[in-house]
């Protein structure tokens, strides 16, 4: 990437163009995502639609433009993804899954529309209970972990999304939280990290999921902070970005998984924040908006939100503050959970 700052621009920001956070192009990029129905890619990614809406909406909130997507359309779309069993699918007609169900709840909380769910929600008990019962039934009552859907795949990601959704609905008492905490502890490795299940290698994405679940359960006391902090801090590479495991390539999405984990254990200062900030900013498409995994690559909404959320954790002045546990605006989490 070349430095494109010209004499006319340098004076306004004091930073080269590529190291400035562009706000408006990102907003426009996210707004444009649903208007790309003439691209095959749009249809091939339908299985991520609800997650995509959560990523886009969260990014807009962080960019200070929470109203950039039409509210009623958003609510209607989310509710149209609900199955009769109370869970949400990725799009209308898609099977219910915990990942999209959690996104649905997060979106409804962000647009302050849980009351609409209460009125129109499906599932056993209807309303909030309908969704909550769907989630609670996915907990494995022998081990404490969660399945992603009725077919039984288990992964600590699902344990986190389960607790995330239930806590936002104030219905955590439907599941065995202590057993879930014990399960997470059984996933701990000698390096202080956590994997998908007991015995699995530590991975930054799973570490985020496990720490965030422990944070929701108010049990971060079980973490080996020093060891984990050291392992996580070694995720930062010379280019400034973070990787997910030892000796892997850096990637913007780990700016979130690693930096949020470090935040939760109070060690964010163990990495170089300004170098990470520069790395994320270099991954922007400054003209058309959006953030990519690495400089020069194709942008997508997944890396856009996790790049922005990483910048927010690092205290970027142009962004709303993000909550490290929920990856939602802190202001909203404070409103909902007090």
């Amino acid at each position: 990437m070349s430095l494109v700052s010209g004499p006319g621009r340098a004076g306004t920001t004091g930073l080269p163009e590529e190291l400035r956070l562009v706000i408006e192009p990102h907003v426009k990029y996210i707004q444009s995502l649903d208007s790309r129905r003439d691209e095959l890619e749009y249809w091939l990614t339908e299985h991520l639609r609800l997650n995509g809406l959560y990523w886009g909406l969260t990014a807009l909130h962080l960019l200070g433009r929470p109203d950039a997507l039409p509210r009623q359309e958003t609510i209607d779309f989310v509710l149209s993804c609900q199955s009769d069993n109370g869970g949400f699918g990725a799009a209308p007609g898609h099977d219910a899954h915990l990942l999209s169900t959690c996104s649905a709840i997060q979106i409804l909380v962000m647009v302050n529309a849980i009351d609409e769910l209460e009125k129109k929600g499906k599932g056993e008990g209807g309303g909030k209970m309908g969704v909550a019962n769907y989630i609670a039934a996915l907990q494995n009552r022998d081990t404490g972990t969660f399945a992603g859907d009725e077919w039984g795949e288990e992964d600590t990601r699902f344990l986190y999304t389960g607790l995330n959704g239930l806590s936002l609905l104030h219905l955590m008492d439907l599941v065995d939280v202590d057993l879930a905490v014990q399960y997470i502890m059984s996933c701990a490795n000698f390096d202080g990290g956590y994997g998908v299940s007991p015995g699995a290698e530590s991975h930054s994405g799973q570490i985020f999921a496990c720490l965030a679940a422990l944070s929701i359960a108010k049990r971060l006391d079980v973490v080996n902070v020093d060891k984990l902090g050291r392992w996580l801090s070694e995720r930062q590479v010379e280019a400034g970005g973070l990787n997910g495991r030892p000796e892997k390539l850096e990637d913007v999405c780990y700016s979130w998984w690693v930096a949020s984990s470090l935040t939760m254990i109070g060690k964010l200062h163990w990495i170089d924040g300004s170098k990470l900030t520069q790395f994320i900013l270099k991954c922007q498409d400054p003209e058309n908006g959006g953030i990519a995994d690495r400089p020069g690559d194709m942008v997508d909404v997944f890396h856009t939100v996790f790049g922005l959320a990483g910048l927010s954790l690092l205290g970027h002045p142009d962004l709303e503050e993000v909550d490290a546990t929920y990856c939602m605006p802190k202001r909203i989490i404070e409103r909902v959970l007090g």
Partner: peptide, 9 residues
């Protein structure tokens, strides 16, 4: 939607 390592034209 989540592309990894795809170069931007």
């Amino acid at each position: 939607m989540a592309s990894h390592g795809v170069a931007r034209p």
